[in-house]
Design a protein around this nucleic acid. Structure first.
Length: 174
DNA sequence: GCCAACGTTGGC
DNA sequence: GCCAACGTTGGC
């Protein structure tokens, strides 16, 4: 039986990496490395699976917002930047046997017809339970099916369109 | 640039 | 295992 699709919100800081950057990446696929928070690591290593939906969120910017949808293309695997002394994300505790930090790859799917600002999200009672609004600092967050549907609706795209684009994006990878 | 929230570290 | 000190995140 197929894994039941889960939904996530991934944060990125636009100067470092934007949704456009994801679209323009080779194969529209980017390695989501450099996450150094244990709760986020646990999601990346243990919970997030290929086919899961991702909302791309732009943080630490004058107008924080969700810009579009991506899809997870593989299971969590060790984040090699933690082993590289030259990397900004180097962590001297890490070894090949004990990688500590994990990452996944995601692929671009489609932009929202309307970007959804944090300011707007705060105005919807139905979204008040979002991790983004409760524990905003977590960089990899679960999103419920209900929240996902609401967000896509507000963003002006149909969940069916999103799911079929996600299926296509996954198929093209394989 | 400020600062609240909160995760991590390390002494005890 | 507690908790103070410290560092980071990220909205504003």
């Amino acid at each position: 039986m197929r894994h039941e699709r889960r939904y996530w919100l991934f944060k990125s800081e636009p100067p470092a990496f934007s949704f456009e950057d994801l679209k323009n990446s080779p194969g529209s696929t980017a390695c989501w490395d450099g996450v150094r928070n244990f709760q986020a690591r646990n999601y990346l290593r243990d919970v997030i699976k290929p086919g899961d939906g991702v909302l791309f969120y732009n943080s630490n910017t004058p107008r924080p917002h969700i810009s579009g949808i991506a899809v997870v293309v593989n299971e969590g695997y060790p984040d090699k930047t933690a082993l590289d002394p030259e990397s900004a994300h180097f962590d001297p505790r890490c070894t090949l046997q004990n990688p500590v930090w994990y990452m996944v790859d995601i692929r671009y799917c489609l932009p929202l017809a309307r970007e959804l600002t944090l300011e707007e999200l705060k105005t919807h009672q139905e979204l008040s339970g979002m991790v983004l609004l409760q524990r905003s600092r977590l960089s990899i967050q679960p999103v419920s099916r209900e929240e996902w549907e609401m967000l896509l609706h507000l963003g002006g795209i149909s969940t069916d369109d999103a799911e079929s684009q996600m299926e296509t994006a996954i198929r093209e990878i394989r």
